[in-house]
């Protein structure tokens, strides 16, 4: 009894789809009716084979004109493991006078396994094609009715329009930012040295006290409180960019101290020039150019 059962199981294991060289073969086609001239028909062939069996692509129909009214426009073979999917796209150029049945021609697929070959037939596939025009000739004023020429398409300006808006936006943003840097906005802290330079431009070397006061006021405004020489280290910590001109600043505060408090400071034309230079450097820092 047990031996009989074992033999039965062995026989079952030896038969069935596992030993079939082509275990799955399906042809997927669309609706077989309602086609007109110029239509495309897609045909999909799905094949599953035993491992080691390869499709011979030379057995596929060649791309191009198959017959007077049929073109094969696309062949696409995808191999995924043991599954092969063949996508074919036909285009029909048949002008029937009435609904007519036509066939996509079949072909034989060849598979190779070592020296052996095996084949699988793809049968003809029938479908109907219908006319677009009535049988009776329809005429317009001159001759037979035909569809008119296509009007030339208008050029699209959307890319240029998008580019225009994009560059306009970027230009405005950059312009506004530069205006801010250059202190063109009222109440901007970036106007401090701009205004100081404007006031300084009107002064001569005889107005040294006024020139020093203008510069001090500018530094005080920037520092939000009076700035003295001994506070310069703190000032540099909160305004690090002014560290670059520390020598000029040290000179200015020294000069100012001696001018106002020692009374021994001689006034030379180059001193006013140096103050102007200091404020110009500060102006550059203010607008982010230094």
């Amino acid at each position: 009894m047990r031996v009989g059962l074992l033999i039965l199981l062995l026989l079952a294991g030896c038969s069935g789809s596992v030993t079939e060289p082509v275990s799955y073969f399906a042809i997927e086609t669309p609706r077989p009716f309602g086609y007109v001239i110029g239509d495309e028909i897609a045909q999909r062939i799905v094949i599953e084979t035993r491992s080691g069996i390869a499709l011979q692509t030379s057995s596929l129909p060649a791309r191009g004109q198959i017959n007077r009214w049929l073109n094969l426009t696309q062949i696409n073979v995808k191999q995924q493991g043991e599954q092969t999917v063949i996508n074919l796209r036909y285009q029909i150029f048949y002008a029937p006078l009435e609904v007519k049945m036509l066939s996509l021609p079949g072909f034989t697929l060849q598979f190779a396994q070592g020296d052996n070959t095996l084949s699988k037939d793809v049968p003809d596939w029938s479908f109907t094609v219908a006319p677009l025009r009535e049988l009776a000739v329809r005429k317009n004023e001159q001759h037979e009715y035909m569809r008119p020429d296509v009007r030339p398409p208008f050029l699209s300006g959307s890319a240029a329009q998008m580019g225009l808006w994009g560059s306009f936006l970027v230009s405005v943003l950059l312009g506004v930012y530069l205006a801010y840097l250059y202190g063109y906005f009222p109440q901007s802290r970036r106007r401090v040295f701009k205004q100081a330079l404007k006031q300084l431009a009107k002064l001569s070397e005889g107005d040294m006290a006024q020139a020093l006061t203008i510069a001090h006021k500018a530094f005080n405004k920037l520092n939000s409180r009076p700035l003295f020489q001994h506070q310069l280290a703190d000032f540099y910590r909160s305004h690090t960019e002014y560290q670059r001109i520390n020598q000029l600043l040290d000179w200015f505060f020294d000069y100012s101290y001696h001018y106002f408090f020692s009374g021994k400071q001689a006034v030379m034309p180059e001193h006013l020039q140096k103050i102007r230079e200091l404020l110009e450097q500060c102006r550059k820092i203010e607008r982010g150019a230094l």
Binding site: I37, G38, D39, E40, T73, Q91, R133, E144, M146, R147
Partner: peptide, 21 residues
Amino acid sequence: ALALDSQDWDSKYNLEVAMRL
């Protein structure tokens, strides 16, 4: 034209006109 655009109905129609002609 139809190989480039198979959905162009005007090309289909006029090709049929030419085929009948």
